[in-house]
């Protein structure tokens, strides 16, 4: 039983480390701010949660603490990246290849129209 927990922990930790590596590669490789933000936050959130929970499984005494830390990361990391992305969009940082796909602009226009109507 304990061995199974151990091995699951190691697998989870390796999984997390792989995602952290992919996130780092993405930050180096991706072409613009928004793409880099994807790599820098989505991949590293999964990576950090994976490694931390893996450590919690390897050492079950720490499980509760690692759970709390993971919850904190799950709450704070996406929110901060969202705020960063929104801020960089609003100060007008250009996208890499601006095709006609700008869903956020459309959403903003719609919500503003709604506010004006209300």
């Amino acid at each position: 039983m304990l061995d199974a927990l151990h091995y699951t922990g190691y697998v989870l930790t390796s999984f997390g480390v792989l995602f952290l590596l992919l996130g780092a590669l993405g930050i180096l490789r991706m072409p613009d701010v928004y793409n880099r933000m994807q790599a820098g936050t989505k991949a590293t959130t999964l990576g950090a949660v994976g490694t931390i929970m893996g450590v919690g499984l390897i050492n079950p005494e720490w499980f509760l603490k690692t759970l709390i830390i993971s919850l904190f990361i799950l709450l704070s990391n996406p929110i901060s990246s969202h705020a960063l992305a929104r801020g960089s969009y609003r100060i007008g940082i250009k996208m890499w290849q601006k095709k006609d796909i700008d869903a956020y602009k459309k959403a903003v226009q719609e919500s503003e129209e709604k506010e004006e109507a209300a």
């Binding site: 904190f72 709450l75 704070s76 929110i79 969202h82 705020a83 929104r86 609003r90």
Partner: peptide, 18 residues
């Protein structure tokens, strides 16, 4: 300054006591 988005506001309300 502009208001922060709803996501940030809600998150801040949850994170602040913690």
């Amino acid at each position: 300054r502009q208001n922060a988005s709803v996501i940030v506001k809600t998150g801040a309300r949850i994170l602040f006591p913690l």
